[in-house]
Design a protein around this nucleic acid. Structure first.
Lengths: 337, 337
DNA sequence: ACAATCAATTTAATCGATTAAACAAGCTTT
DNA sequence: AAAGCTTGTTTAATCGATTAAATTGATTGT
């Protein structure tokens, strides 16, 4: 591999010290540098196609211009969508993003945090995995700038950008009820994750408000597909089968409707469905899926902007719960009267 | 922010030089170091939770343990799936991946390359954007280890991992014909990208082999949705409308079937469809979509393994064209006889 | 008893930048 | 003409690690 062009090479080429080259290329000491010398330096840098070594620069300046993003799984469309928004927004401020997938696993998440900190990221955006309060607490103690996204812990006072999960759950359930479905089941993960519990709580609150019985099925993260299938089947094989199901994440929704489809059950006539998040799959289903849409752009942009704010100005704690929108399609259509 | 624990801190804590600490923590000079001293150093490192500064380490050792991945758009499921596989495989060898999205734009891709090289990545995996031969050539000249993935340039001898696009195109078209569809249209991007041309070439070759007329619609990258809609409509409003359409990428397929659906056209009875890549949307469509499946795991793993091979052993050029699988579903079902 | 060997550790240079402080030469000012 | 500014540039320390080479003190061989 050809050797890289260094500051020293430019200095030699022009016949000045590396210090001067550095000053010129960083536009420092404006006015104190001979215009003509400066031009020669800039020209040489251009010609030699000088690219500063960011490791060296970062080491000296203590600024890596890098932030870390930890998601559950970068191949999940929710994660990759957010990742893309954050990438773009970070770039606007000259920052690069390093991603990592935690697989909803606390240990992997800790490894990722260490890895990112070793790489001297200036801050983190984290979609925290289950049971990672301790890790978040210890980040707080260390004082690394970070912002939680999507998930957060009610017991920890820290920056986060998320949605109003309770309202989303309530709204989705109410919508089904208003459209004539009264026995409504819910499929969620068996999890301590607060944001998912809140979606379920919103559901429960509404069901209670109409004096109904909550019917909640919890599935494992490890075995989503099979578990969702069982969950759906159980909800349908009750003495009084459910008339509608609310799935609280994109994956649950997808596996759910695939199974419903395989069972030959007609949506919404035999069973209404409300899903969460957006995916093309929801549109292409013969009965397009009513779903809770999260404001992705806002989530992403707000999280990175908050993070950069903290990094640069050490602003006070900021917590955001954005509103969601219920996109009403066919899968929850009211009974024809 | 609490100050980080340095090698120096451990040295001071134990009462030895930083050199010794470094040797111990890197398991160097095995046997030449007093076992008891070594233990004390390791214990101190543990207690103080020492995390080496990778910028400093990388600067000195000239190894960043980082590789760069350039995709068209990380939020595209194809890209994010590949990214995830590469992330996992890289981690196994102690490497971290930095991603960037080029948006199919040559200039952005060049910026990304520079950015990644500044960050001293040891190598690159690139899904090259259109018209970036020059960039690839110049990477070759500079001698940076890199592997092209998904896309490659017939005129450039370099490492790449891709599929046999021609065969995929041929196979998909033949399948439609064998199932009784003879007027078959194709929707692709208006592009110089060789891999997409090859998919179209495979299509053309087959159509010619049956003495048919190729019906190719090209859409722009910038305006996919509208253009696909127009393309589909044009294919259907021919004097003799097409009986089947082959879409050569996942996005084209999704937009295509959405539109076909909106037009109220029944698949496959009124129009058969074959798509490319996999997405949940294909399964959930009322007539599950027959599609070309790319071997994602192999693509991802092979690309990173090849790259690491080059980095470490400077192996000779390796080009790979993997076979694809045609997943036959309902959307291309033979006419009932 | 003296050189040679060995084990254990330290010294100091280095990676490629940045930057405070020093310096040189010309110009003012009194 | 001495002292003080300006302007333009260089010197040298530094960031936090790694690592070749030097050093120290003990041990061994002859």
């Amino acid at each position: 591999m050809k050797k890289k062009v260094l500051l020293k090479d430019i200095a030699q080429h022009v016949g000045v010290s590396t210090a001067l080259v550095s000053y010129v290329l960083n536009n420092q000491k404006e006015g104190r540098i001979n215009k003509e010398t400066a031009d020669r330096i800039r020209k040489a840098a251009q010609e030699l196609n000088y690219q500063p070594n960011q490791l060296a620069k970062g080491l000296k300046t203590q600024k890596s211009l890098t932030i870390g993003l930890i998601v559950a799984d970068i191949s999940n469309p929710f994660s990759s969508h957010i990742a893309r928004i954050i990438e773009d927004e970070a770039k606007k401020s000259g920052y690069t993003v390093i991603f990592g997938s935690s697989d909803e696993n606390a240990e992997k998440m800790q490894d990722l945090i260490n890895l990112l900190l070793n790489r001297q990221v200036e801050g983190l955006i984290i979609a925290a995995a289950e049971n990672t309060e301790d890790q978040v607490q210890s980040l707080l103690k260390v004082g690394i700038p970070f912002v939680l996204i999507d998930r957060y812990f009610p017991g920890i006072t820290t920056n986060y950008v998320a949605i109003d999960n309770f309202a989303a759950g309530y709204k989705a359930t109410k919508h089904l009820f208003d459209n004539g479905y009264s026995r409504i089941g819910l499929v969620t993960y068996k999890t301590e994750l607060f944001h998912l519990q809140e979606r379920a709580n919103g559901y429960k609150r509404f069901i209670e408000s109409i004096h109904g019985t909550p019917l909640i099925e919890e599935v494992s993260v490890e075995n989503v597909k099979e578990d969702v299938e069982k969950a759906v089947s159980r909800l349908l094989s009750q003495p009084q089968p459910v008339e509608a199901i609310f799935f609280v994440t994109n994956m649950l929704t997808i596996h759910g409707i695939k199974h419903i489809n395989n069972l030959g059950i007609k949506v919404p006539n035999e069973l209404a469905v409300v899903g969460f998040d957006e995916t093309d799959a929801f549109d292409l289903f013969y009965a397009p899926i009513t779903h809770v849409r999260q404001p992705m752009e806002e989530l992403g942009k707000l999280s990175i902007r908050t993070l950069l704010d903290i990094i640069h100005n050490n602003t006070p704690v900021k917590t955001v719960n954005l509103d969601t929108e219920l996109i009403i399609r066919t899968s929850s259509k009211a009974f024809a009267l």
